[in-house]
Write a protein that binds this DNA or RNA. Structure first.
Lengths: 171, 171
DNA sequence: TGCTTGCTTGGAGTGCACTCCAACTCTTTA
DNA sequence: TAAAGAGTTGGAGTGCACTCCAAGCAAGCA
């Protein structure tokens, strides 16, 4: 993982053509970590330029997914070296942390892209951002309630099986 | 929605195992049933034979999905009329309640099918059922923790936007 | 008898969120 | 200079959980 520390920052404006896949209806609660191991490696102090594979290590996302995130507009503009390779900053890692959180809560990618757009558009979109997050917060609250009620059902059934097991063990 | 009330009640093969009854306590509004309006219609008293569309109403699942559930082995044996139409029982509705709960928690359909198999196989599978549910219960516990930590992040960011809004309103 | 409604089937299609591929460039190491 | 290795792209493929379709059957009604 050698890192080229100083490079001319030729930021060519690459505007990813949004496919804008709008999700009109609420989603099923299908989540789970999607196979990849969760990263959470500590960030090296004093560093502010990371290759795609370093970021993949950090975040637990694959390099494929990071490129895909950029393509669909889910990343703020990512810096490039003069040869066109991506160099992610600490700010990008912060953003990916947030995205990871939102993803864990089942926010559709389309909504996250919308939020990213609002962030790119600047301070004028604070109100809409607050609204979007508030709406999602309410979703999360509801999901927690759902999960807790299901946990009760599970406890109830597990209890029945455990009782049956203990009864048979006592024989 | 005409209901054929009296039919030859050829309810064969009572599935061995526990009464698959759920709901140790009233559940908090489990809204958002995948696009269709969530059912939760009260069950008519004294009825024990429902058409597929009635069950769809009840559960919020589509008739398509109910047929698909049966095809992949997620339903216990469903009764048929002499002309081959499905007639679901209250026991089936109980089962679908449980399946709905598990689905809301993101249990993969394959795992639910496995559980259904175990139920069909009878009392000898109590231990494995207990294990499966216990494992899933741990998953749910973890998901709740994830959601709560994300909720904290959301509160933090919402707070920032709200502060900005209040500051601009004060001007 | 024809029309409508509701059900049946196997198989194909959809949407989401990745995930991979082929063909290529650039940099580093031997 | 050659090879290895990490990066680039557009586009195709994957897995899950549905979702729909066409074609047909059965019952009720005008």
């Amino acid at each position: 993982m050698t890192v080229t520390q100083s490079e001319p920052v030729t930021s060519g404006t690459v505007v990813a053509g949004l496919p804008e896949t709008v999700c009109p209806r609420p989603r099923p609660a299908t989540l789970r970590g999607c196979g990849t191991a969760r990263g959470d490696y500590p960030r090296p102090a004093g560093r502010d330029r990371y290759t795609i594979s370093e970021v993949a290590q950090h975040t637990g996302l694959s390099a494929h997914t990071l490129r895909w995130y950029e393509r669909i507009g889910l990343m703020p503009h990512v810096d490039r070296t003069h040869t066109g390779q991506r160099r992610f900053t600490n700010r990008d890692l912060d953003w990916l942390d947030l995205v990871g959180k939102l993803r864990l809560t089942g926010m559709p990618v389309a909504d996250m892209v919308r939020y990213a757009e609002l962030v790119r558009e600047g301070e004028g979109t604070f109100a809409e951002r607050e609204e979007l997050l508030t709406r999602h917060r309410e979703d999360v609250r509801q999901r927690i309630a759902e999960l807790e009620s299901t946990a009760d059902v599970l406890d109830y059934k597990i209890g029945i099986y455990a009782d049956a097991r203990r009864a048979s063990e006592r024989v």
